[in-house]
Design a protein around this nucleic acid. Sequence first.
RNA 1: GCCGAAGUGGUGGAAUGGUAGACACGCAGGUCUCAAAAACCUGUGAUCGCAAGGUCAUGUGGGUUCGACUCCCACCUUCGGCACCA
Length: 805
Amino acid sequence: MKKYIPKNIEPKWQKKWEESGLYKTDLAKPNKFYVLAEFAYPSGDLHMGHWFTFGGADIYARMKRMQGYNVFFPNGFDAFGLPAENAAIKRNIHPQDWTKSNIAAMKKQFKTTGASFTFDHEVITSLPNYYKWNQWIFIKMFEKGLAYKGKYISNWCETDQTVLANEGVVDGLCWRCGNPVVQKAVDQWFFKIKAYADRLIWPEDPNVNWPKSVREAQNQWIGKSEGIIIDFKLENSEEVIKAYTVYPETIFGVTYMVLAPEHPLATKIATPEYKQSVLEYLEKAKKKLEVERKEAEREKTGVFTGSYCINPANNKKFPIWIADYVIGTYGTGAVMGVPGSDKRDFEFAKKYELAVIRVIGKTAKDKDEIKSLQDVLEEGYLVNSGRFSGLKTPQPAKEQVKGWMENQGFGERSAQYHIHDWSISRQRYWGTPIPMVHCSKCGIVPVPEKNLPVELPYDVDYTPKGKSPLASNEAWLSVKCPKCGGDAKRDVDTMDTFVDSSWYFFRYLNPDLETKVFDIDLASKIMPVDIYFGGAEHTLGHTLYSRFFTKFFYDLRLTKLDEYALRRVNHGIVLGPDGNKMSKSKGNVVNPDDEVNKYGADAVRVYLAFFMPYEGTGPWISERIWGPYRFLERVWLLTQVKAAKPTQEGLYLMHKTIKKVTDDIEATRFNTAVAALMEWLNYLGKKKVSEIEYETFLKLLAPFAPHITEELWSYQVKAADDDKWSIHQQKWPEADEKYLQKEHVVIVVQVNGKLRHTLTTGNEVAEEETKVVKLALGNEKVKKYLATGVKKIIYIKGRLLNFVT
RNA sequence: GCCGAAGUGGUGGAAUGGUAGACACGCAGGUCUCAAAAACCUGUGAUCGCAAGGUCAUGUGGGUUCGACUCCCACCUUCGGCACCA
């Protein structure tokens, strides 16, 4: 037989698959199975990460297809976004043209993976027939009060000249360009994801299969806490400061109040004497970078306002301070300081010589003075707390104090959330225009649905100037108000690209549909996604937003789904050979195209599946592809002897491998599935291979190495069923339990749990403990160890015999 | 600090509570060759022993069990996420 030369077979089959429409899906057929992999950003280069994501998804999809499912495995492009603009500015190419040519290039690269997705349902988010529906969704959000505009202190990236969502700030730096993020008041559009916070919290035991790490991280991000808002009256004033706390039981220990610099009363309550220092402090706080604000070990700073307020629990007055460790957007932006039972408050009080009162003691009588941090107790018994003294904390003290506060009328229970509303407007060009019109008479007016899409104009000056590039196109900007018909202007911001990716999996079903956001009937049949492959980096962004959209669609009665994906698989990361993340600056990028040229797509695919667990993270070491390559070469050279009949042992190994490979692919344990195939091949290579063994082997390997198996399958002379010419159309082998029984069993003989002997015997003998014991005792070595006498015998039928002495 | 995942040979990694190290890389020896590469065969956790065989080994220390990489408790380390959230 000829030498195994991947180049000679891979492009050939890729072409044939495409021409024959082998992987087209007829969504009208029953037994659907929706395999989704995160669509790619068209950077112009398909990297190893794409191979890993789509490779895993493809293995899974191929098995499901062979198992008889009507697999839907679409692909498309997440085509809006900053890199297009940056590249355009750098190279003077229009973002649209840059994106278009990148998509064309990447489609070619995608083909070389041999993956079985289809572009027949392609979604390209930068096309008007897609983003029109972003705009439609935006307007629906607006109508429901879930999209609103407000001036907010936002994360601002100076380099990219745009606002970032909280999820887009990584360690105080911009996730895209890595430069420091500052706080800046900007007019922004928001989606009220907070309104869905409770529904987005994962239950303990959800009825979909998502990794625990994702569920926990999302819950933590939503960060629901249940406490109480307490009214503190200002001294000599009717003004009230509201402070949120989850420790109301420590109310008698309050010795000061701290306001966030953004708090509306911050400047107002400063007395003339302190005004100057307060203003200076506020100015300084404003200039702080997000990185500095988040610096964990930073020392707390603050400034006294000169004003006081009254503790409603005991009518004592205490000073009001301003400090930037208080977050303006969380709770009420005001915090009661309880240095006696809060370590952070204690440090602040100590620094500024504020009073410290013990309200939680080790025992009900513990009223020891608090001298150092070690003396601060967060749990114990209430002391110095009036009628509540002596109660155990947190419960029942917390609940009793809460009830009392409510009765007295100065406390109101409240739940607070860590999650912020999602800021979705961007002051950049390459995104979905926000479909709103600003009219001097009517205010903000949505563009009527019949006028959608608001198309993104081609001619704009998109170099960053700190304001939206769309404002530079006067003709586009000017519009008649849909309400009064007077002169008005369009909104010049564009949407965050995470809006695009929050619902693309609905649009895949029927991407050309012009009358609806997605095909509702089809969605009711094909959704939810059965398995969704993607990266862990989307835990708090994309996958959370998608869940939000799904629940919003539910409320619009577009879907009955609670969750859009039944199962989520987070794959790991392929690192560079040096063990670092692949990056151009580190020069450790492995280009999959080069690897394919050297070893072929099948070897790259098998190596990717084999070299580490799919959820793992590890370096790509090129030389190690030789293992999978040699494996494929041995498959290539494997010869069947048509006259040969499989032996009993052969059948056993075949069915064992079928079971192992099937179970492993199902559980995305691709590495052990490949190992099982290698093991079986090691056995097959030493004997006469029957036709059934040969064909079964090829079928099991087909999801991993689709080209070589297709080639070898084409040599099999079959009673030609022309419709089923491809190995990928064959029926997936099923393991038959009856062959998994061996005629001989190997029984492990232990003495006190330590292996001393193994014995091989027939099935009938293994049935009876006494016979097995007799056999074991016949062994001299075992006998020797039992010299001290046998106390107990444990026998696990057909597997293990343990003597306890 | 909180949450999540994990710690096993020279390396990547396998092991429903039941023969620890499957499978592969690498390495060593051999076959083939003028030679080399490739391919193939054999060996390959450590240690004692000529051998048969023994002993020690899954981050550390305890525990449960006839038997623990696996379960429980405490701790250490690494990775990922969150973090001045009141």
